[in-house]
Each structure stands twice: as structure tokens, then as C-alpha cells.
Amino acid sequence: METTETRARPDAGAAAGAEPAPRGLTRRALLARGAAFGMTLIVGAGFVTARDAAWAVEVTTLKPETMATLIQMARDIYPHDRLADRFYAVAVKGYDDPAKAEMVEAGIAALDAAAQGRGFDSYAGARWEADRTAILQDIAQGEFFQTVRSGLVTGLYNQKEIWPLFGYEGESFSKGGYIDRGFDDIDWL
């Protein structure tokens, strides 16, 4: 993806804060707005980054808030408490693409509207997962939700880095298969 970049950036938070704040936001304001994304995300100018600044997604076409909401939406569709946000960010970073931006901005706007219909300021402003899931149910039959969900099936679960968190061991030919590595080692039956 030429238009996006995702990697662990120890300095990303600092970089985001140190930028000349093109949208007229001070670092304090950023943090304050970030708080609206109550989970783990802080929105910076052109960046969506982890609260602990362990990683960042640079957004070039989407609004940072949109990307942050999208990452939250991805987590709420496939919530795994042991998976860090960065895996969800990787799974949806491809939407930061001029060809998709309109669809995504409209989809997230509709999601926020659905949230408002249930009395929340925004989707990300709903603090309980159960509330956000109810909001997602409202849009679940729509094209936007279906696109994001089906994209996640491979975008999330085909990231080799997450496999060990599920115990899945992946490729095994180079290790000689499991004939001597526990194909029949079950001990609790």
C-alpha cells in the first residue's frame, strides 16, 4: 500500500505531537480529543497512534478520527482481548486509500449517526462494547459493514504474527511435520 505506512514507531507519539499541528490543534487538544476514543487510541495530526505510542498508522486521505473509529469498529467486530490494537490497525490500514476514502468516510459517518440514534455522541464515544455492538447491529446488513467485516477475515486472521496467540503453529514442513513433535501427545483424555 503506497499511500499508507504502518510499523512500530517508538517515536510516533512524539512525532505526532511535535508536528506543526496543521489542523490547528495543540498537543493538549489532541490528547483531549483522543480521550473521546476512550479505548487505546489517540488521534494525532495525520496519525492514529496507540496511547503508549508503541505503534502508529499514518493516514493520508482519511480523517484521523475516521481511522481511529475504523480500528475500534474492527476490534468490535472481531474482539480478541489478547490482540493489541496494532493488529486491527494493520487489518484496516488499506482503507486509507483515495479510491476508498469516500466510502469509508460515509460509512463511519453513518455509524456515528447510528450511535447518535442510540443516544451516544459518536460510535467511539460509547464506552461499553455491548453498546457499540448494538450500534453495529443497526448497520450490520449494510454494504459498508459487510465490506469491513469480510475484509477482516483475511486482514486480521491471516496475520502470521497473531497465530501464536491462538496457539496455532503455522508452517510445519520445514520442522519435519509433527511426527516427532506431538501429533499424538494429548494427555488429558
Binding site: D76, P79, F166, G167
Partner: peptide
């Protein structure tokens, strides 16, 4: 999607 789905996958092993 949602917890009914992911809680099953969490037990994949």
C-alpha cells in the same frame, strides 16, 4: 462476528 464468534476462535487450541 462479535463475541460469540471470537470467543470460539479464542479457544482454537
Amino acid at each position: 462476528w462479535g463475541r460469540p464468534f471470537t470467543s470460539a476462535l479464542d479457544s482454537y487450541e
